[in-house]
Amino acid sequence: MDELIDILDAHGKLTGKTAMKSDAHKNGWFHQTVHIWFYTPNGQILMQQRSKNKDVFPLLWDVSVAGHIGASESILTSVIREVQEEIGLTISPPDLEKIGIYKSFKNHSRTLKDYEFHHTFIAELKSPFSALQKQKSEVKDLKLESLNQFSKAICNTTTYNYVPHDNSYYKTILKEISKRIYSS
């Protein structure tokens, strides 16, 4: 779905300009997204399989919830909206812990360039897995995967079926979630 988004400079600062998401992707303009990683206290991470209709990385496993921040939309409003839309959960700001902003740029083709700043959060999954409701246009499937299995899977490039984020990004996610689970 196309939407109006804010355009950033290469340092992640708002430029005061807006554009349709499709134009930002066509022209390689930096913009903001949200990533929310849900985990369980017993060491599992919620993974989302992208819909077969996605422009990039269809059917690959990815972050629990992700999406673009709308023009003039606050980061937290975007997080809450995306979680509700993609997996049917209602959350509030105290449920979230921001762990960083990650710059990512990928040239998928001449006309599709993802130049993004991911505002990345983690949150404990407090609802039962069975209560999650997939947004069919965005999400093919959901699964809970052990942190150990996820760690092994992202290092195995021969059977890689995850969105190819930088390995350092994935390692940061694993480290931050592990700190919350194993330090309690």
Rank of each mutant, 00 (worst) to 15 (best):
1 M>I: 02
5 I>M: 01
5 I>A: 00
8 L>E: 13
8 L>Q: 14
10 A>R: 15
11 H>K: 15
13 K>M: 13
15 T>M: 07
20 M>L: 15
20 M>I: 00
21 K>W: 07
23 D>A: 12
25 H>S: 09
26 K>G: 07
27 N>Q: 11
27 N>R: 09
27 N>M: 10
27 N>W: 08
29 W>Y: 15
29 W>D: 14
30 F>P: 08
33 T>L: 14
33 T>W: 12
36 I>D: 06
38 F>Q: 00
40 T>W: 05
40 T>D: 05
40 T>N: 04
43 G>M: 08
45 I>G: 03
46 L>M: 01
47 M>I: 08
47 M>P: 01
48 Q>F: 03
48 Q>S: 13
49 Q>S: 02
50 R>V: 05
52 K>W: 12
57 F>E: 12
58 P>K: 05
59 L>K: 13
66 A>V: 05
67 G>K: 02
71 A>W: 01
73 E>M: 07
74 S>H: 08
75 I>E: 15
77 T>K: 12
80 I>C: 08
80 I>R: 05
80 I>K: 09
81 R>Y: 06
86 E>Q: 09
91 I>V: 08
91 I>A: 02
93 P>F: 05
93 P>V: 05
94 P>K: 03
97 E>F: 03
98 K>L: 06
98 K>I: 05
100 G>D: 00
102 Y>C: 03
103 K>P: 04
106 K>H: 14
112 L>C: 06
113 K>H: 13
114 D>H: 06
116 E>C: 02
117 F>L: 07
118 H>N: 11
119 H>G: 04
120 T>F: 01
125 L>P: 04
126 K>N: 05
126 K>L: 01
127 S>G: 00
128 P>D: 14
136 K>N: 10
142 L>Q: 03
144 L>S: 09
147 L>I: 06
155 C>N: 15
156 N>Y: 12
159 T>P: 02
160 Y>H: 15
169 Y>V: 07
169 Y>E: 07
170 Y>L: 11
179 K>I: 11
180 R>N: 04
181 I>L: 01
183 S>C: 13
